[in-house]
């Protein structure tokens, strides 16, 4: 038995060697700094250093739960991320499938370049562009489009009910092209023989998509979704802070854990408290991922991540 194991390791030695640089990097870049999570449980004093500072238990976590907004920020974070996962995945797969249907080179190039454009613009600039649409004094929507439809002007930055839709739209607009490129890459590599056979059997396009394309890119969909679930307590700070222009009036529908932490610690600058927020977000994500991975495993062992 030992001998077999030994041989197995020997056989895989070159492969393990291939892995070495990457593993080393993760060790240095990600695992070593994890000792820093103890900062969340300490009252950091610079004169004493990180290890010498006093332990204060969970005190750094208190501010996350103490406020009456704790419910709102958690609800918002979960709802937004939940919506993003569903809408973005469906949207990106659709775009990717459609992109794959385009065969004319010129169009192919054009669409592929254009859909990724929004991903390249920073959120600060996106917030200006959104403002250009929504401003009360000079926005395109209020000045040109709404009057055209015979509708009243809307004061967007003080009407919180619209923001779930606005933020979801911006998020789709910005992220969907990027995501669709990932799906496109895996669709492109599906063996064309599958489709040829299906066509011979008289399967319609729609059937091909349902029976070949989607099942074959399912592992990619699973992994992307699991990753998104793992980060469900995190949110894109720029989207929730810059795009609503930090307008307090909107906070019922725009504030999420990350913006709460930023606003709360802006004056305090306490690294213990900010790292407490990170630890909290990570642990929730971790638990959820383990649960989802377990569920995936039950249905299809192949698709599970581990």
């Amino acid at each position: 038995m030992d001998e077999v194991a030994k041989n197995r390791w020997k056989r895989f030695a070159p492969l393990l060697l291939l892995m070495l640089p990457g593993l080393l990097y993760l060790l240095i870049n990600n695992y070593l700094p994890m000792f820093g999570m103890i900062i969340a449980f300490k009252d950091i004093n610079f004169a004493k250093g990180i290890f010498g500072s006093d332990w204060i238990g969970l005190k750094n976590f208190e501010y996350l739960f103490k406020t009456s907004d704790a419910f709102i920020i958690t609800r918002n974070t979960l709802l937004y991320n939940g919506a993003f996962i569903i809408v973005n995945t469906l949207g990106a797969i659709t775009i990717a499938i459609l992109l794959n249907e385009i065969r004319a080179k010129l169009y192919q190039r054009f669409y592929q370049s254009v859909v990724i454009l929004p991903h390249l613009i920073s959120m600060v600039i996106v917030s200006y562009l959104v403002f250009a649409m929504l401003s009360s004094d000079s926005g395109l929507l209020n000045k040109s489009i709404l009057p055209l439809l015979g509708l009243e002007e809307i004061s967007w930055y003080s009407s919180k009910e619209y923001w779930p839709y606005i933020l979801t739209t911006v998020n789709i607009w910005k992220g969907i092209g990027f995501l669709s490129v990932i799906y496109l890459a895996s669709i492109i590599s599906i063996d064309p023989e599958y489709y040829e056979a299906a066509t011979l059997d008289g399967a319609s396009k729609w059937q091909q998509i349902r029976k070949i394309t989607v099942p074959l890119i399912m592992p990619v969909i699973t992994i992307m979704t699991l990753l998104a679930i793992g980060r469900i307590f995190y949110s894109d700070f720029g989207l929730f802070y810059q795009v609503p222009m930090d307008s307090g009036i909107l906070s019922d529908t725009t504030s999420v854990i990350d913006t709460y932490v930023y606003r709360a610690l802006m004056n305090l600058g306490d690294i213990g408290m900010s790292s407490a927020a990170g630890v909290y977000q990570s642990i929730v994500g971790f638990v959820l991922v383990i649960l989802s991975n377990y569920t995936v495993r039950k249905f299809n062992k192949e698709n599970a991540l581990f």
Partner: peptide, 27 residues
């Protein structure tokens, strides 16, 4: 503020939520 940092963080957040909009007359 360190003896009351939990409260300080929570209050900072409430202030950013309301203050400017109130003082600009938007609310």
């Amino acid at each position: 503020s360190s003896p009351v940092k939990t409260e300080y963080a929570a209050v900072s957040n409430v202030i950013t939520q309301y203050r400017i909009a109130l003082e600009c007359g938007a609310l």
